[in-house]
């Protein structure tokens, strides 16, 4: 993925549309593609951006920073009680131990899910999301259906993700209205007691770290 989009001279002239890997003949460039192309060309011509910096930004979020980062943090917390304690008391510093620092992760908070408490995260006002550990947010996270209902009907939203939380469990919704960025520490699934950190990291999903799913609900097939 990293290698196929960097021929700056012409590659992104083509908008392949929403279904699109490789149907360049199908549709004319969308209005948005043309608009971005004009802004980028203008910004380059005026010296406002360096094209190489643009490519670096795309590559960073397309292939380097993503939910595998968060999964490593979670797996460490599951296997190392001292790390978990640091993570819950100073999440920013504990996450920085992995080198996961920077934009949209400057001030982190980790929320622990338990048998009694289920945490889930939303940004009703825009799309605040912990980029350093989860990468860029999925479309649904930024969409009106999720942003409007996560605070009003969290259990209904969870059910849409296949996550049914018992009436005795407290659902805590965290609306990221400031510059704190939240990562949910999901519960470690039963049956993984003898797994090592790498095995555990492999089953931690993005959605479980947003708090819209529980790993315990996943079948062994879904985990593999």
């Amino acid at each position: 993925m990293a290698g196929d989009h960097h021929d700056h001279a012409h590659d992104h002239d083509h908008d392949h549309g929403h279904d699109g890997q490789g149907h360049a003949h199908a549709a004319p460039p969308s209005p948005m593609a043309a608009r971005v192309k004009a802004i980028e060309a203008l910004a380059v011509a005026k010296g406002l951006v360096d094209p190489a910096a643009l490519d670096l930004i795309v590559d960073t979020y397309e292939s380097k920073v993503g939910p595998r980062n968060g999964a490593r943090v979670v797996a460490r917390a599951w296997t190392d009680p001292a790390y978990k304690a640091r993570l819950l008391s100073d999440a920013t510093a504990a996450i920085a131990e992995f080198g996961f620092t920077g934009r949209q992760g400057e001030d982190m908070v980790v929320l622990e899910n338990t048998d009694q408490v289920h945490n889930m995260v939303v940004c009703t006002l825009c799309s605040c999301y912990p980029w350093t550990v989860l990468g860029l947010p999925p479309v649904w996270y930024k969409s009106a259906p999720y942003r409007s209902r996560a605070v009003l009907d969290p259990r209904g939203v969870l059910a849409e993700f296949g996550c049914r939380v018992g009436d005795d469990v407290e659902v805590r919704v965290w609306d990221s209205t400031a510059e704190l960025r939240y990562l949910v520490l999901p519960q470690r699934p039963a049956g993984t007691e003898d797994w090592d950190e790498d095995q555990l990291a492999a089953i931690v999903t993005r959605d479980s770290m947003i708090g819209v799913t529980r790993l315990a609900d996943q079948t062994p097939e879904m985990r593999s």
Binding site: H12, S30, M32, V49
Partner: peptide, 13 residues
């Protein structure tokens, strides 16, 4: 991560 190449360029710009 991106649904069309222009989205990536929009983010980067």
């Amino acid at each position: 991560v991106f649904h069309a190449p222009w989205e990536a360029r929009a983010l980067a710009v």
